[in-house]
Design a protein around this nucleic acid. Structure first.
Length: 298
DNA sequence: AAATATCGCAACCGCATTTCC
DNA sequence: CGGAAATGCGGTTGCGATATT
């Protein structure tokens, strides 16, 4: 294509942001709003590339960002959403008010992976994403992979479940007919979409139908899923801390689900990592709601 | 106390997708 | 409609902080 890189590295700052830069960026965005990332640094008097500015704003400077202290309930939701979505950090982050995809990704890689390993979860499975399975990393795959990757235009949403099973969910014992997995379409968060909007809508009782743009993708997925009516997804069995595969059927808008493995299926709606259960705050209820909403959407 | 190893996280990079013209 | 530009996402890296030897 010959497009120039987002930032010509000549003369631009890299590395950690100074407070002065933060202030410049914050002030500029407060005055002019988000967007126009490419021209923003120049206009704001920053020696950074637009990407860098956007990242800094999204991950640290935006109002409402929570830092650190990811609660057990949040961890639990992350684990469960990861079971549904894979490494779709932005999607997961979109369901955790005040959390960023980067933070969740880091937390997953540094804390949750260990935790899950300790609790006997097959971790490599958890790290497998539909995307990474479909798209070989060029660094690992070498030149051939890189070329193949370049040629691939649209990312396939439909993944052969056999591949998934072979790589991970050995325990799936359903008929090995050609079963398709319909993965959630990666949703773009438009500049106008606040990641807390889902939370707000949930709290206010409005669920998914009015979300600006957010509900679109899952609806499309639903259409796709309606195509052959059956889809599978790996999910966490929350009581026994094992990953199981959930059979999810969708017929005429009615969703039924069964558990193929994982011991007692009845424990699904209890925390995977933590079994406190005594004090259930409204936050917990909210997270449960968020999770349930996702399960419905999928 | 110094050297080394490990950890955690902020930032970068490359690519995919969307938007614009 | 096609190509270029802009944006967004996920994987990876680099480095400071902390722990261990």
């Amino acid at each position: 294509m010959g497009r120039s890189p987002c930032c010509s590295k000549v003369g631009l700052m890299r590395g950690p942001w100074s407070t002065k830069e933060d202030t410049l960026l914050t002030n500029y965005i407060q005055e002019h709003g988000e967007g126009q990332w490419r021209s923003l640094p120049k206009n704001a008097g920053l020696l950074r590339c637009g990407k860098s500015c956007r990242l800094r704003w999204m991950n640290y400077l935006r109002p409402g960002i929570k830092r650190g202290n990811i609660s057990e309930d949040e961890e639990d939701l992350i684990v469960r959403l990861h079971g549904l979505l894979g490494n779709r950090w932005s999607l997961i982050a979109g369901r955790l008010p005040g959390r960023t995809d980067n933070e969740i990704k880091n937390h997953w890689n540094t804390h949750l992976l260990k935790k899950l390993k300790n609790s006997g979860v097959h971790v490599s499975t958890l790290r497998d994403t539909p995307k990474s399975a479909a798209k070989p990393k060029k660094s690992a795959a070498g030149a051939a992979g890189a070329v193949a990757g370049k040629k691939k235009k649209k990312q396939k949403k439909v993944v052969d479940v056999e591949e998934k099973i072979n790589g991970s969910e050995k325990a799936l014992t359903v008929d090995q007919e050609k079963i398709k997995v319909y993965l959630p379409k990666p949703m773009r968060v438009s500049p106008g979409f606040s990641r807390t909007s889902s939370y707000d809508s949930l709290v206010s009782g409005a669920s998914n139908s009015d979300g600006a743009g957010e509900a679109d993708a899952p609806e499309k997925e639903e259409e796709a899923a309606a195509g052959d009516g059956v889809s599978y997804m790996p999910v966490a069995c929350r009581r026994c801390s094992r990953w199981s595969t959930r059979l999810l059927r969708r017929r005429d808008g009615v969703e039924e689900d069964d558990f193929i493995m994982g011991g007692d299926g009845g424990g699904f709606f209890r925390p995977l990592l933590h079994h406190s259960g005594d004090s259930i705050s409204s936050d917990v209820n909210m997270l449960e709601k968020v999770y349930d909403e996702y399960v419905q959407l999928l």
